[in-house]
Design a protein around this nucleic acid. Structure first.
Lengths: 339, 339
DNA sequence: CAATAGCAAGTAAACGATTACAATAATTAT
DNA sequence: ATAATTATTGTAATCGTTTACTTGCTATTG
């Protein structure tokens, strides 16, 4: 591979001129620019990134550390981030922490080693507690997960509110004993449980929330347990797409029909929620906007390290479908007498 | 951030010794090793990767270019690759080509710029035609997509065979007019169509295969079209998870039931295929093994650049479920007379 | 005991770019 | 025409490592 020296020699100019042309800098005459460009083409020259990064101390690279790449929510967000970055000639190092704080820590160390310009992070609960951006040698934008009192740039859903609306929707459709399965290891799960609990309290209902690991299998097991309790919940609310999937599997396993036996609602408008019969009521998250907002926030922070902390809160959209259909009065003799 | 010089000074040794300790090289006394390590800890030193890469001309980084990160198949494969790499202290640059040859080319250029040790690639059709590893400045292992006559390391499914078995399964269950929706832009789609066509031919049946873009929406549109033709197909075979999803949506849209009106079978054992009623018959791909095999193959190739070309062919497993249940004789008067 | 090997540690030259600074050429002002 | 200014270009130092080579010991051997 040709290096900058050979290009300079071939073009009959100095290495500085070549460098200036490659960087798109001003202050180089059109004549030399052309000579350099033809030499570059002739030698198929491409600057060595390691050398450039060493000398310039910039990498034009950002890190994206997601909690679980197999969760379609994060896949979508990653794609959005990658798409924007790609257009702007930035590199993205995508890391999958697998909800594991050790892996998360290792990746953050790696980001430091790589000298990235910034990081987009969906943090584990452990890291989020007492999180302070100043502890990191690079700008950090949190995504999906953030506490009320976290002082860091962040892009999140209005989790409490969205879960509240979802729960109210179930309540208004006649359901009273509503169970909630929420992700134990994420701030998001907790906030959604909080919104659910608030809605229940506002209607004088007793909440029953179960914390689970946010995997399909764990959610299914927990849901089966919950469904075998007496009295059985009339409806279930799942705080994420994976938990919703596990919960739906549990209903199949226990041969319960929704919404007749147990109504169902959850988060994440994934394609399959429209495929099952009936389709499932969900809060749709604007994954694309989340990703775009995160990278824009990060770029602004990189450009302006001292600007005020910003938080972007996006609204989830309630998609009402059959799984939460109004409770049929025929089956609810008990409710009829109390109403 | 401390650099190697400061560490050397702090430990009272030369930079060479520090470097040797950091690299885990032999030929350094236990005494100095300890002094270096304490200095490293005291100064919180971490070697600068840019400098290391520049000097050593190695990056310990591989590129993983997938066709579509939103396709769960590739998500799973990526996770497997990343997992193995992580354990071995390799970095992975994950790139999403979005089935776009230009983006794919741009990423391959990027890989060269990054001076990666090797690349795992699921190529577009255009690139696969006439693919030769020698055209690239790094070792390449193909994954998921590979032609019979491609002379490159590759890890693929036994696509033709798997599709053949899947089609035969439908035929043996009494279906005759079987349509096939396959991915137009991937070698995999073509091979699966080929296996399907072979099975049809072997049973004296006329194939009807439609090439589609491998997206949910395109597949749905094409499937709706196909389902509105007269005579309507008795069964549909989808060549990938996304196409299967779109096809299933089409059945919902046209209010057709499976398997009663149209039987259904496809590729990729995704969680949702077990959720719909009835569950869908699929070929399960060993995504984890595919990913692991790919990175192992790549590492062997990196260690032994001149070893013979290898191809790992993994077998897909047929998961028979309700969507392809034996055609009920009651509804198939025509078949009864011909049987 | 001198010669020789073997090991540990140090010195300094790369790696290939960027960029501060100096030098030169071209332009404008007086 | 000359001085002052500006626009180009070149020179060389620098980024932080790795590593070939040299040096200085200590231990081994004939």
């Amino acid at each position: 591979m040709a290096n900058i020296k050979e290009v300079a020699h071939h073009a009959g100019v100095s290495v500085a001129s070549v460098s200036r042309v490659m960087a798109g800098h001003t202050g180089v005459s059109e004549a030399t620019r052309q000579r350099v460009l033809t030499a570059v083409k002739a030698l198929d020259y491409r600057p060595d990134l390691a050398a450039r990064r060493l000398r310039s101390r910039r990498t034009d690279t950002i890190g994206l550390i997601v909690s679980d790449i197999r969760n379609p929510f994060f896949t979508e967000v990653s794609r959005a981030v990658e798409d924007v970055a790609y257009q702007q000639q930035w590199r993205v190092i995508l890391c999958n922490a697998d909800e594991n704080p050790d892996k998360e820590a290792a990746y953050l160390d790696l980001m430091r080693d790589e000298n990235v310009s910034g990081v987009i992070l969906s943090p584990t609960l452990a890291r989020l507690a007492g999180f302070h951006p100043a502890d990191y040698p690079f700008p950090v934008v949190l995504i999906d997960r953030c506490e009320r009192d976290t002082t860091a740039d962040a892009v999140v859903l209005d989790n409490v509110n969205a879960a509240y609306r979802l729960a109210v929707h179930l309540i208004e459709n006649g359901y009273r004993r509503i169970g909630c399965l929420y992700g134990a290891v994420s701030a998001t799960g907790h906030q959604r449980q909080e919104g659910y609990a608030a809605a229940m309290a506002a209607h004088g209902l007793k909440p029953q929330a179960i914390a689970v690991q946010a995997t399909i299998d764990q959610a299914r097991t927990a849901a089966v347990n919950l469904l075998q309790q007496e009295p059985r919940p009339e409806a279930l609310l799942a705080s994420s797409g994976l938990i919703l999937l596990g919960t739906t599997e549990a209903l199949r396993e226990t041969q319960l029909r929704f919404p007749e036996d147990v109504a169902l609602a959850g988060f994440d408008d994934l394609p399959w929620t429209r495929l099952v019969e009936p389709a499932i009521t969900v809060i749709a998250q604007p994954t694309d906007d989340l990703g775009r907002a995160a990278i824009h926030l990060l770029q602004q922070r990189i450009a302006q390290p001292d600007q005020a902390v910003r938080r972007v809160v996006l609204r989830g959209e309630l998609q009402v479908r059959g799984s939460s259909a109004r409770r049929s009065p025929i089956r609810t003799g008990h409710l009829l007498t109390t109403a």
